[in-house]
Amino acid sequence: MPKKRPAVAIASAAALAFSLTACGGSGPKNKEGLGTADAIAVGHRKPVPVLSGTTLDGAKLDLASFKGKVVVLNIWGSWCDSCEAEAPYLEQAYQAFKDKGVQFVGVDTRDNAGQAKAFVKAKQISYPNLFDDDSETLLTKLAGFTSLGFLPSTLIIDKNGDLAWRALRPVDYNDLSAALGPVIAE
């Protein structure tokens, strides 16, 4: 029996390391900027790929329909502790900015629909959330704009559809409020 304990300890440590890497780790893809939040000057912005798909409510959603609005795009997973911690701040910011021409959209990835719906319900998230499941089709379209191996991440897309701000780390209400002000004023 004592010989089994090291194997169990090693397996437990490996599982813990994997779960930490999956949420806030530094996977090999798109590591640049992890842990940062940066504004992008108007002349240096690039168009964000248009995402479309099915929301957790079963509705069709196309980001192109929000052209002319500022869009806050948050990429999350229900299994991610940092995503869970930031969810109330995102909802708070959504409530504060929805009447100022700002649309929030979540992108749930690496979940099954039941997990994602339970997360949205538990966190009382009222803005639409696209469902990306294990296929990562939507996440892959954002290569170069966000990390493919790190969650959460938040992008602010300006009224022209260009990336104006990105956070490759958890955000809070103050982060979002400070970042949205200048983009809304443009």
Score class of each variant (00 low, 15 high):
residue 78 S to F: 00
residue 141 K to A: 13
residue 164 A to L: 10
residue 105 V to G: 06
residue 164 A to R: 06
residue 166 R to H: 14
residue 110 R to S: 13
residue 85 A to H: 13
residue 151 L to Y: 11
residue 67 K to M: 12
residue 152 P to L: 07
residue 150 F to K: 13
residue 99 D to Q: 14
residue 83 C to H: 00
residue 178 A to S: 15
residue 143 A to Y: 00
residue 91 E to D: 10
residue 83 C to L: 00
residue 144 G to Y: 02
residue 128 P to A: 01
residue 84 E to C: 10
residue 166 R to W: 06
residue 120 V to I: 15
residue 162 D to K: 15
residue 103 Q to Y: 03
residue 174 N to D: 15
residue 142 L to R: 01
residue 90 L to V: 04
residue 83 C to Y: 02
residue 144 G to W: 02
residue 141 K to R: 14
residue 170 P to S: 14
residue 117 K to P: 06
residue 147 S to G: 11
residue 102 V to Q: 04
residue 140 T to G: 07
residue 157 I to F: 00
residue 128 P to W: 04
residue 178 A to F: 08
residue 103 Q to I: 10
residue 130 L to P: 07
residue 103 Q to L: 03
residue 98 K to V: 08
residue 92 Q to D: 10
residue 80 C to L: 05
residue 176 L to M: 10
residue 109 T to G: 11
residue 102 V to A: 00
residue 132 D to S: 10
residue 149 G to W: 00
residue 175 D to M: 11
residue 154 T to I: 05
residue 160 N to D: 15
residue 129 N to Q: 12
residue 70 V to Q: 03
residue 183 V to G: 04
residue 131 F to A: 14
residue 69 K to R: 15
residue 167 A to R: 05
residue 134 D to H: 14
residue 90 L to G: 05
residue 89 Y to R: 05
residue 183 V to C: 06
residue 133 D to V: 09
residue 160 N to R: 15
